[in-house]
Amino acid sequence: MSLNITMARPTTDGTLTFRDVPPGVDASAGGESTRQWLYSSQIVRDLGAVYLPRLADDRLVVPPEETVAFLRECARVLAELPAVPAAPPPTSRPTSSTSNAA
């Protein structure tokens, strides 16, 4: 499963009208594991992020009036990206090992 960015506009009745992604724009925000290890990581929280950590548990809806604050948060995290640890290795199933020792 992948994490994607979807643009939507709120309507007067409280629903959302979803917009098509413009041609040539990549709407990918990483794999589903990115939600857990990056967006909700302590280092991202230590950078003062309040929007991105919400992705750990739910979808993120940024109201139009908060878009600038969200973009600033993204820029802050991107600026510190070299300090963010690499993704942990995928969880693997334990394997049983047998020993041939006598």
Rank of each mutant, 00 (worst) to 15 (best):
P23W: 02
V21R: 07
L38K: 04
P63C: 05
S96L: 15
P53Q: 02
C74G: 03
W37G: 00
A56W: 08
D20Q: 13
R19A: 13
V61Y: 11
T91N: 02
R59L: 15
R59T: 15
L16I: 03
A83G: 07
T12H: 06
A102C: 14
T67A: 12
Q36C: 11
S99E: 04
R59W: 02
V44T: 04
R19C: 14
E80N: 08
P23H: 08
P10E: 10
A56Q: 12
G24H: 02
D13F: 01
P90W: 01
E66G: 05
P63M: 02
D57C: 11
W37A: 01
R93W: 03
Q36T: 10
Y39T: 11
V77F: 06
N4I: 10
D46A: 10
E65P: 04
F70N: 00
R54L: 04
F18P: 03
W37N: 04
G48P: 11
P53M: 04
M1D: 15
T12K: 08
T6P: 03
I5V: 14
F18S: 04
N4Q: 06
A101N: 14
A56C: 10
F70M: 01
A8R: 06
E80A: 15
R19H: 13
F70Y: 06
V61M: 09
T34N: 06
L71E: 07
E65Q: 01
R45E: 13
G31V: 14
I5K: 03
P89D: 13
R35K: 11
L47W: 00
T91I: 09
L60P: 00
D46V: 07
